[in-house]
Design a protein around this nucleic acid. Structure first.
Lengths: 185, 185
DNA sequence: TGTTTTAATGTACAACTGTCTATTATGATA
DNA sequence: TATCATAATAGACAGTTGTACATTAAAACA
């Protein structure tokens, strides 16, 4: 399967759009592969040529969103011209990104969703935090474990925020996070 | 559906045992309801009388494990006669419990597993930690958010440990956790 | 542009899913 | 112990799943 083949690109895009459209008004678990194919007007056999299950299709969309997250984080330094050891602007961008894709994260953190989405998000956060975390060296601390600890802590805050329907403001979230985070340095 | 009816108790137990047996050598997603029923020698219609999906059956088993977790945590104080503000013995018991049910937690934290298991575990951890966390009051801190932050941090450490096949010793995990946790008080 | 490669289609299959209905069997209870 | 309530069964249904294979269509590229 050549990913540069125009037929492949077109087909994937069609599936992608169909899934997003369906996710607008019902959760993942009540969408069938048949339904996606019907809406996409693509043969069901073709679906299985590209994906094992509908979840794989969603993960592809997921990666697009993760790229925006990465860009947001990088942008935090580019645009504001601050240094990585000042945690605020970068984490604010993370919170901003999550709110921007609020509907998406609601799906991702649904009870019925797969842990794999959690892991993908967590890995990305770990990567972003990793840069900062490895600056605080302490020979007693296992940096791997500590990164897992801190990255999950942030993911947890975000999940709470999403579940709570973004009732806290961006600035409040960022302020609290900075508070928790600074306590642990 | 009367949960005290001996027929119900017997049937649920049979399903329970069949699922555990099947989970021994293959993951949840490749076990079918039909397969569970065949092994349990119970009519498939009966399955749907009790559960919506196979996942509901697993959650029932899940709750049994969560009760052991709670007992472990309580036991930490009962047996060792120490106070809750000394974090070590209670968290050690949590790590001990997780290792004891290692096979179970491997299933629960699998890529393909449902986030709902994560939430159930997280809620239990939050409950256990909550007692300790609310002792450290600070008017600037949102205790809800902070609990989400800390509980997820611990869950994250545990997930890392499970994924890493328990290569760290119980004592090492506990020592590291105490280190991270104390840093943040 | 013509040929080659391969993605997409159409169709079929056995197995599974979720739901239903009438019937049987087994605990509960009086 | 006899009766009642209801859990469990058997069987059927339309729809979905994952897979397979021969055929067709469209992009690649020489």
């Amino acid at each position: 399967m050549n990913l540069n083949d125009l037929r492949v690109i077109k087909t994937k895009k069609t599936f992608h759009e169909a899934l997003v459209k369906l996710l607008m008004d019902k959760p993942m678990e009540s969408i069938s592969v048949s339904e996606i194919c019907k809406l996409a007007k693509v043969n069901r056999g073709t679906f299985y040529l590209h994906y094992d299950q509908k979840e794989c299709l969603f993960e592809e969309y997921f990666k697009v969103v993760m790229e925006d997250l990465e860009d947001s984080y990088q942008g935090a330094y580019r645009d504001l011209q601050v240094q990585p050891h000042e945690v605020d602007p970068s984490s604010l961008r993370i919170f901003h990104h999550v709110k921007k894709y609020g509907d998406f994260y609601k799906i991702v953190f649904t009870n019925k969703a797969s842990l794999s989405y959690y892991y993908l998000f967590y890995e990305k956060i770990k990567l972003l935090l990793g840069e900062v975390l490895k600056l605080y060296k302490n020979e007693d601390i296992d940096i791997q474990l500590y990164t897992a600890y801190q990255a999950n802590a942030l993911v947890g805050m975000i999940m709470y925020w999403v579940a709570d329907d973004f009732s806290y403001s961006l600035d409040y979230m960022n302020e609290q996070y900075a508070l928790f985070y600074r306590m642990s340095i």
